[in-house]
């Protein structure tokens, strides 16, 4: 199974990226059931749910290099120019 991993450098938080993927911004490029977030730690007495350092996307169907490149381009567009995010497949 092909797997795409988005990792954040240092303390960067992927919560918003994760939410935007789940809200359907990648449209039909990925199956939302295959999108998972790696759990991060949290600070005591904090309001939120902790940092998300990693998101994995399991691709159910085999995708060609061109399709993968399309997903990566869509992700890049979502992240803007944030260089501290890595995408590996």
């Amino acid at each position: 199974m092909q797997k795409m991993t988005i990792t954040a450098e240092k303390d960067y938080d992927l919560r918003e990226v994760y939410d935007r993927i789940l809200d359907g911004e990648l449209e039909n490029l990925v199956d939302l059931d295959g999108v998972h977030a790696g759990s991060g730690g949290t600070t005591v007495f904090a309001a939120g749910s902790g940092r998300l350092p990693e998101i994995t996307i399991s691709l159910k169907e085999h995708k060609s290099d061109a399709e993968i490149a399309k997903i990566q381009a869509a992700l890049r567009e979502m992240f803007g120019t944030q260089a501290h995010i890595h995408i590996s497949t």
């Binding site: 994760y18 939410d19 789940l22 998972h36 977030a37 759990s39 749910s49």
Partner: peptide, 11 residues
């Protein structure tokens, strides 16, 4: 959104 995180996350 946080409820969704909680349901989906593999903690």
């Amino acid at each position: 959104r946080y409820l969704r995180h909680e349901v989906r996350e593999r903690v």
